[in-house]
């Protein structure tokens, strides 16, 4: 193997780090810059201030938005784990033609761009009085997260020996008890994957929340940040401080659970 040039390598590393860390650096410098400080965004202010952070917490109520987003995320993830694990079991175990059709249908939904059916989906949500209701955004997010969950669970269940199910059946378990007593206890690792992937998606969602949650008192993280940036009088520093606070939980979770995030990504991509 040819030895890579160490100098070139260092240059490459520095360039990569510069490009990928720059957004985070700029976000930080602006969040701590007083509004009177007109120095370059690249420079950390010589007179840093906490006012933007304070405004983000007190005026913009970013913690409230984080709380609402967390609530929606937890509801979606819990429901998704239950519904998709159940749905995956027959698809993994009963290879009838009909079930193959069902599975192809579910995989197809993964490709559907949700905005292509925006008009009718929104009109349906209006007709069931779902606008400005948490349950509506939870159900819609859940629906569009489900295919990935079902896919991951079905793949995982296929790797569990069928002999275990058969043994349970001989011992007199019905499909329900087989699922609860034999299959479920083994699903821990894949459940972590499903939960991690869909929490990121829910936490970062904008396209669904934007039209289902229209009142500002229900703003999620992305909604409150976007309302800040799109106001006519733009208080950019407060908006950036909101963004900084909002990404912290995700960044911290990622740094701690990195291994699971990346393994989950790989599991979900291999088709």
């Amino acid at each position: 193997m040819r030895k890579a040039n160490p100098v070139l390598r260092v240059i490459a590393i520095v360039a990569i780090l510069a490009v990928f860390l720059a957004p985070f650096w700029i976000l930080t410098t602006i969040s701590f810059k007083p509004s009177t400080d007109t120095s370059s965004y690249w420079l950390f202010s010589s007179t840093p201030t906490m006012n933007n952070i304070k405004a983000a917490i007190e005026k913009a109520g970013i913690f409230g938005a984080i709380g609402r987003t967390a609530f929606i995320t937890v509801c979606v993830v819990v429901l998704e784990v239950i519904v998709s694990a159940f749905a995956a079991y027959p698809l993994a175990r009963r290879n009838t033609k009909f079930n193959k059709v069902v599975q192809a249908f579910i995989l197809g939904i993964m490709m559907v761009p949700p905005l292509s059916i925006l008009v009718s989906l929104y009109s349906i949500i209006v007709s069931i009085h779902g606008v400005n209701q948490y349950w509506a955004v939870i159900l819609v997010l859940l629906t569009y997260q489900l295919p990935q969950g079902i896919f991951l669970y079905a793949n995982f269940i296929r790797s569990i020996p069928v002999a275990l199910d058969e043994a349970a059946t001989i011992d007199g378990c019905g499909p329900g008890r087989t699922f609860f007593l034999v299959i479920m206890p083994q699903l821990k690792p894949v459940t972590a994957t499903v939960a991690i992937l869909s929490s990121v998606n829910c936490w970062n969602d904008f396209q669904f929340s934007r039209y289902i949650l229209q009142t500002s008192r229900m703003n999620t993280v992305t909604l409150s940040i976007s309302s800040f940036f799109s106001q006519t009088y733009i208080d950019l520093s407060t908006a950036t401080a909101c963004a900084l606070i909002a990404i912290l939980p995700v960044v911290i979770c990622f740094l701690i659970l990195q291994k699971y995030f990346i393994q989950g990504m790989i599991d979900s991509s291999v088709k």
Partner: peptide, 24 residues
């Protein structure tokens, strides 16, 4: 560390990334 840094932006809401890019 380099891998972590490259993967980190994947975690950020694309909406927020768009607003950060405004400053660029």
């Amino acid at each position: 560390f380099v891998r972590t840094v490259i993967y980190l932006p994947v975690m950020i809401a694309p909406l927020i990334m768009g607003y950060i890019m405004y400053f660029f």
